[in-house]
Amino acid sequence: MEKLSPFVLGDGKKCIGCKACEIACHVSHNVEGITAGNIDTPVFPKLFVTRVEEVTMPVQCHHCEDAPCAQACLEKAIYFEGDKVLIQTEKCKGCKDCLVACPFGAVELVPRFTKGEVVIQENLGKPLLYGNKCDLCNTRKQGPICIEVCPEKALRLVEPHKEKKDKNIKAVATIAGMFKK
């Protein structure tokens, strides 16, 4: 069976909406140091805790097998590396096609900061924006940090082939149930 791209999925039944995952995501990608005093830019996480009435849950990239964001990107800045869908942010021109294409709203445009100051484009006089989405913490040895810091263990790494296999095995019992005589 093919190995499809793993991705991180939140559990709405466990999530308490605390946003520790968002903070950890930003810190892990952008901050040297582990305390709040080291954050010198606004926080731009790659996963988005979303609230619908009584339920909260983080929403993030599924690393789609036929990623619409990659197809939509004008600059071909979104590419597949192994089983991850990544954005080459230097190529991004902020066209917003990926924002529209993504069925989950998992991509955002965020400003770039150097040394704590927002980068302003020379002629346009406005902040430079680039596409930002979950990269499965691809430069982090231990993998996704959001999963580690969630106090409720509401995030997990889904490995689709394992998911399917486990479900198939559980389904055998249901079939036996149908044919019980």
Partner: peptide
């Protein structure tokens, strides 16, 4: 004290 951001640390 300086606020630790990553609970696992």
């Amino acid at each position: 004290q300086p606020k630790v951001l990553l609970e696992n640390e």
